[in-house]
Write a protein that binds this DNA or RNA. Structure first.
Length: 192
DNA sequence: AGTGAGATGGCCT
DNA sequence: GGCCATCTCACTA
């Protein structure tokens, strides 16, 4: 079943963990694709130095982070890569979850490292054609180009690895916060 | 295996 | 003008 918008209103760390194992549907290039979410990172409100909304910077880019939970937030990084996020909580709390790795459904079992195309936030967006055009979408609507569903795939607490976020060294102490979550031993996780 | 540089452009001060 | 929530390739060893 498709995840209702209320799913995204809870605290962001809980939603991030709950998002692991859920299915992202992509309907962009004409064909419909499905992929299981296996790696995410949480970005927390105006007091998180690693977040784009740090210091309450409400700008054209971060506009959709200030929407209600359940919207998409897509931004351009390093001039060449897009990154897909899921907005959480409500308009008073601009928080989001970065989708860092997904497992295509279905996929052949003997994957070579070279053939991994969805193990990284920039890579997976490039692979599925996700760009800034897909910013601000309503992820709880089946007619959206992007939406997320629950197919009853079970994820136990033990399978969830918790680590500091990647690529946020500039954020000082916050670079150490344990806000990266991924499924242990899944080949579509971006790094070891 | 591990390090480093380059591509590339919008966003923010 | 400087800085990125990245990735790939080309080096060293």
């Amino acid at each position: 079943m498709i995840l209702p918008q209320e799913f995204y209103f809870e605290d962001t760390e809980s939603v991030a963990k709950a998002l692991l194992g859920k299915v992202l549907h992509i309907n962009i290039t004409g064909k419909e694709s499905r992929a299981r979410i296996v790696e995410v990172e949480a970005y927390l409100d105006v007091d998180d130095p690693a977040a784009h909304t740090f210091g309450d910077r409400k700008t054209p880019r971060t506009k959709s982070m200030y929407l209600d939970g359940g919207h998409s937030y897509v931004y351009l990084i390093y001039g060449m890569y897009n990154c897909l996020n899921v907005v959480t909580r409500t308009i008073d709390h601009p928080e989001a979850i970065l989708i860092r790795g997904v497992e295509p459904l279905p996929h052949h079992t003997d994957i070579k490292k070279k053939d991994l195309k969805t193990n990284g936030p920039g890579k997976l967006c490039k692979h599925y054609g996700i760009t800034r055009e897909h910013d601000g979408l309503r992820l709880w609507k089946k007619k959206s180009a992007l939406y997320i569903s629950d197919d009853s795939f079970e994820v136990s607490k033990k399978q969830i690895e918790i680590k500091p976020r990647i690529g946020v060294d500039y954020a000082g102490e916050a670079a150490k916060w344990p806000l990266r979550f991924y499924l242990k031993d899944n080949p579509f996780v971006s790094r070891k």
